[in-house]
Design a binder for these strands. Sequence first.
DNA 1: CACTATTTGTCCGTATGTATG
DNA 2: TCATACATACGGACAAATAGT
Lengths: 267, 267
Amino acid sequence: MPSTSTENATLDPIALLFSSHQRRLIKEDDRTPLYHKLYLLLKNAIVDGTLPNGTQMPTELQLAEAFDFSRITAKRAMDELAADGLVERQRGKGTHVTYKFRPRPVAAPLTAMLEELEILGRHTQAKVLECQPLQPPGHIRDEFGLAPGASMLRLIRVRLRDGKPFGYYRSWTLGMEDKVSRRQLENAPRLELFREQGLVFTHVTQMISAIAAPAEVAAELDTEPGAPLLSLLRRSYNNTGKREILVDRLQALYNPERFQYRMDLKV
Amino acid sequence: MPSTSTENATLDPIALLFSSHQRRLIKEDDRTPLYHKLYLLLKNAIVDGTLPNGTQMPTELQLAEAFDFSRITAKRAMDELAADGLVERQRGKGTHVTYKFRPRPVAAPLTAMLEELEILGRHTQAKVLECQPLQPPGHIRDEFGLAPGASMLRLIRVRLRDGKPFGYYRSWTLGMEDKVSRRQLENAPRLELFREQGLVFTHVTQMISAIAAPAEVAAELDTEPGAPLLSLLRRSYNNTGKREILVDRLQALYNPERFQYRMDLKV
DNA sequence: CACTATTTGTCCGTATGTATG
DNA sequence: TCATACATACGGACAAATAGT
C-alpha cells in the first residue's frame, strides 16, 4: 500500500507494542542513559510476555525511528538484552526472543474462597499479643468521647494460616475489660465472644486504605518496614440509648501477599 | 569519650541523616549519574522535613567522605539544590535550607461522602494518558484467553478532584478498539460509554489489596515510588454465549492520603 | 548463479556529559 | 579552574550473513 505521504505510523507494528505515551516518556530527562531506558522497556515487554518466545524483535532501524534516536543507541539496548540471554541476534535474520514466559500463579489460592472476615476466623489461628485494660491514647479517647484516665480493653492479635501470619489486629473496646481471656480469644472469634457478653452493634462503618508497615507490625507479618499493607478500619456503633455511640474500634493490617479482600457481585 | 583512633564515623552528623544502607545503595549501578542520585537524596530530606528550614547542610567535604566520592560531585549536587531554590550557598558560611516544610493534612476529608465508584466519576475530572489498541502482555492475554498478537483497547487514566490526582486506572477491554475517543472518556464514565456500545456485564469480581507504587504511577499520583497504594482489581464478565468470558479488566491504584474506600453497613 | 533487500556487525569521527584529582 | 579519562549519543560508511527473486 503506497501511502504517499508523511506521518502514517499507525501501521507500524511498534505502535501496537509501545504507546505513544511510552515513546514520549522515554525522552524525559531523568538523566538515565537512553540506551538503558530502552533496554528496560524492551526487557519488560519480554518478561511480561508481550513479546513471546521466538518472536522477532523490531529491527534496530525501526526502534531508532519509532523512538527518534540513532541506530547505535537501539543497537546497544538490544546488545544488552542479548547479554542477558533474553534474545538472540543474527546478522541478516534479526533479533529473536529466547525467553520463555511463565505466568505466575494468579493471586493467592488461599484467599480465593474467603468471602467474609468472620468465616476466616474459623479457619485460621490467632496469637494474642496483648489483652488487658489500658488507658487509650488521646485520639482514641476523643473518638469514644471518654474522660481522661478512663480505660478500655486493648487487644493486639496476629492471625495465621498454616502457621504463616497474614493479619495484625489492634482493637479498643468499650466495657469489655476483664470479660474475655487470652485463651478464649485464641479459640473463638472476637465478635462472637463480645456477643456472648451482651454487646450488640447496630451500625458499622469500614474504611479500607493502604499504609506503610510500621516496624513492629512488619516484624509480626514477615515483611519489611515500609512495605505496603492493606488497612481496614472498622468502627462499630450501638444505639440502645438515645444516640449512637462508638463501642469498638478495630484496625486490621494485612500482608497483601497473603491476604486480599475479595468480592463477588452478581449483576 | 576520646576515641583515639581511626574509623569512628558514628559521631558524624551524616550518620544520623542517612543510613549506611542508603550510603551503600547510592553506589549501585543503575546508570544514573552519581551527582543526580545525591541530589535526589538531599532534596528528599529537605522536602520531607528531615532537614528543616534554616538548617545548615553537611559540607561538600563531609558528603564526599560519607558517600565516598569526590568533592566536585557533592558540589554539583548542592549546586542543583541551589538552582531549585531549596538551599542558599555562601562562601565561608556553608549551605543552608531555604525551603519551608508544610506537613500534608492526614486523610482527605473529601473522600468521606463517596460511597460508590461510579458516583465518583461524576464529581471528578479525568485525564486520559493513553487510549489506543495495543498488544497486551502475556498474563493479560492469558486471562482473556487470546492468541499472541491480538490487540485490545488499552486505557490509562488519572482521576482528579480539585485538580489533585488521587486515582490511576489501567484497563484492558475486549472488542472496544476504536469505539471510544479520548474526549468522550474525559467527559463521561468509562462504563457508561461501554454500555452505549452494547457491552454488558453479567458478573463482576473485585479484589482489594495494597501495593508499592511503581515509579510511573507515583509520578502521576504526587507520591514517591514505593509508597503504599490501595489497589482495586475488577474483572467484568459476560455470559451471553455458552460460557462466561472476561471482557474487561480494570486495575485502579489510589493514593491513600486522598482516597479511601468506605462502606456503611446497617445491621 | 548472480542480484537485491534486509538486518546486524564493525569502524570512524565528533560532540557532549560525567567523574576524578 | 584546569587537565584528564571515560561514558554517552550521533551520523555516516562499509562489511557480512540471510533470505528471496
